[in-house]
C-alpha cells in the first residue's frame, strides 16, 4: 500500500480519445460490461459472479434488498472501491473494449470517464460556480477559438442539470447554501461538466423530498439522451418509472450478493422469470 502510493503510474492514456467521445464506445452497443465479477472486502465476499452488460444511453436500475451489494457493484464500475482499504475485485469489467481492472489501467482515468453521483448530496464547500468548474479545469478543459469559455460551460452544465434558473444570480455563493435537491442537481452538473460516458448514481434521491425527487428523475431521463446512466435505488416505483433496464440483486445463502435477474424493466416488473424477483417485487410493490 505504502509503496504503491508513491510508485509512478504507468503512463496509460488508453481511454483518452480526441474528438467525439460518444462515438468512441465499443461496437458492442454496451456501455460497460461485468464478467464474472466478484468483490471482496478483505476476507468477506460481498458480491459474487456478476455477469451483466449495460446498454448505452439507457437508464439501468439496480434494485434489491439492503446489503445485497448494489452499491458495491456500482462502485466497482469506476473503481471507487479502490479507496476502501482491503477491497478488491476479481473478474473483468469491460469499458470501451478494455478491462478496467487490468494492471496497467489508471483508476483516475477510469473515474474521469465514468462519473458518480452519491446518495447524500456532497457539494464541495466552494462556490456554486467552482463546484462545476473545478473538475473540468482539473481535467484540462480547453478554451480558445470556437470553444466555449469556462463561464459558458458552467452555464451549460447548470442548464443541463436544470439548476441554472435557480442559481444564475448567486453563482458565487457556497454550494452548501442550496437546498438538498438543488445540491444534488449541482452534483449532477458537476459530474457532466467533465463529459463522462457513464454516470453512476447511488440512490441519488433517497435523501430528498418527493418534489426534489421528481426533478432528479426528470433530469435523469433528460440526461439519458446523451449519457449512459446506472442508478441504484431501493425505491421500486422509481426504478419502474425511470429505467429502461432493471437488475435485481439479492443475498445468497453464503451472505454474498448475487445478480438474480436482469432485463427489460417492464418485463422484470410484470413478468419476472425468477421466483425471488417476483417475491421481492410483489412484497414491496403490491
Amino acid at each position: 500500500m505504502l509503496s504503491s502510493n508513491i510508485m509512478p503510474y504507468a503512463q496509460s492514456n488508453i481511454f483518452s480519445k480526441t474528438g467525439e467521445q460518444e462515438e468512441a464506445a465499443g461496437a458492442s452497443g454496451f456501455a460497460i460490461e461485468a464478467r464474472n465479477l466478484s468483490i471482496h472486502y478483505s476476507a468477506f465476499r460481498a458480491v459474487k459472479n456478476v455477469d451483466m452488460a449495460i446498454p448505452e444511453r439507457k437508464i439501468t436500475a439496480i434494485i434489491g434488498p439492503s446489503g445485497c451489494g448494489k452499491s458495491t457493484v456500482l462502485r466497482s464500475f469506476n473503481r471507487m472501491n479502490d479507496l476502501v482499504p482491503g477491497a478488491h475485485a476479481e473478474g473483468d469489467v469491460i469499458f470501451m473494449g478494455q478491462n478496467i481492472y487490468a494492471p496497467q489501467v489508471d483508476p483516475v482515468e477510469v473515474r474521469r470517464r465514468i462519473g458518480m453521483v452519491f446518495q447524500k448530496p456532497n457539494p464541495f464547500p466552494r462556490s456554486i460556480y467552482e463546484n462545476v468548474a473545478w473538475g473540468a479545469r482539473l481535467n484540462g478543459f480547453k478554451v480558445g477559438l470556437g470553444r466555449p469559455s469556462m463561464d459558458e460551460w458552467v452555464e451549460n452544465c447548470l442548464r443541463k442539470a436544470a439548476l441554472w434558473d435557480e442559481v444564475k444570480d448567486k453563482l458565487n455563493q457556497s454550494g452548501l447554501s442550496l437546498s438538498g435537491g438543488q445540491q444534488q442537481r449541482l452534483c449532477i452538473a458537476r459530474a457532466i461538466a467533465i463529459q463522462p460516458q457513464i454516470i453512476l448514481m447511488d440512490e441519488p434521491a433517497s435523501a430528498l423530498d418527493p418534489i426534489a425527487t421528481l426533478k432528479v428523475e426528470e433530469l435523469m431521463q433528460e440526461l439519458a439522451r446523451d449519457y449512459t446512466i446506472i442508478v441504484v435505488t431501493h425505491n421500486m416505483q422509481q426504478a419502474a418509472r425511470v429505467s429502461d433496464q432493471t437488475a435485481f440483486f439479492t443475498v445468497d445463502a453464503d451472505r454474498a450478493g448475487m445478480l438474480v435477474e436482469f432485463g427489460d424493466t417492464r418485463q422484470i416488473f410484470t413478468n419476472p422469470k425468477d421466483s425471488r424477483t417476483e417475491g421481492y417485487i410483489s412484497g414491496k410493490y403490491g
Binding site: 469506476n78 471507487m80 479507496l83 483516475v108 482515468e109 473515474r111 474521469r112 470517464r113 462519473g115 458518480m116 453521483v117 452519491f118 447524500k120 456532497n122 457539494p123 464541495f124 464547500p125 473545478w134 473538475g135 482539473l138 481535467n139 452534483c187 458537476r190 459530474a191 467533465i194
Partner: peptide
C-alpha cells in the same frame, strides 16, 4: 463524502 466526490471527478 467530499473525497469521494473529488475522486469521482477523476481527481488524483
Amino acid at each position: 463524502a467530499l473525497r469521494e466526490a473529488a475522486y469521482g471527478l477523476g481527481a488524483t
